[in-house]
């Protein structure tokens, strides 16, 4: 029997785990960050679509929405699926500032999201093998298993892989 490849589409402030050959994808990242953590010794990866750097209180209804609770959720869920900490790696993209004209602090959220993601990964000692962040462009991203390629396509038609 040929197993069909799984395609998981992740919405804003959502997350999912992939443990078969297939794709995790999220569309239209602006200031949000699409973070993937995977185990490089087995067929296992997870993605979260992070909107904000910090959760306002301990147990939000959508933990995936925030860098702090989202990364904790992703890490714990991967460990429950049998991940080995020493083999965890991360790749992420996003964190744009879509509207250049406004200099309000709240509009610099992309930058703050990227900083929060990098800090949380460092705290968990998960090496980052690729980051495509900043600028002022929207990104649609995919992560493929078993290749572990992270693909990025922008509104300008650029395609990159890491």
């Amino acid at each position: 029997m040929v197993e069909e490849k799984e395609q998981i589409r992740i919405g804003i402030a959502e997350g999912a785990i992939l443990a078969t050959p297939g794709t995790l994808m999220t569309a239209g990242l602006g200031s949000c960050v699409g973070l993937v953590i995977y185990d490089d010794s087995r067929l296992l990866a997870g993605m979260v679509h992070i909107m904000l750097p910090e959760s306002p209180h301990g147990r939000p209804s959508h933990p995936q929405k925030y860098a702090d609770t989202g990364i904790a959720w992703l890490y714990e869920t991967l460990m429950e699926h049998g991940a080995s900490h020493a083999h965890l790696r991360a790749k992420y993209a996003g964190g744009s500032q879509m509207f250049q004209a406004l200099q309000m602090e709240a509009l610099r959220i992309g930058e703050r999201n990227v900083r929060a993601v990098s800090m949380q990964l460092e705290r968990l000692r998960i090496p980052v093998l690729g980051a495509d962040v900043g600028g002022n462009v929207g990104r649609t991203v995919w992560f493929e298993l078993p290749s572990r390629h992270y693909l990025i396509r922008t509104a300008r038609g650029d395609e990159r892989q890491m």
Partner: peptide, 23 residues
């Protein structure tokens, strides 16, 4: 003052969603 951008709809709107708190 108005800020303008031409890009993917979801990418442009996420800033509005995050500033409005509850999704």
């Amino acid at each position: 003052i108005p800020a303008v951008a031409i890009d993917m709809a979801a990418a442009l709107l996420d800033i509005g969603l995050m500033m409005s708190g509850d999704e």
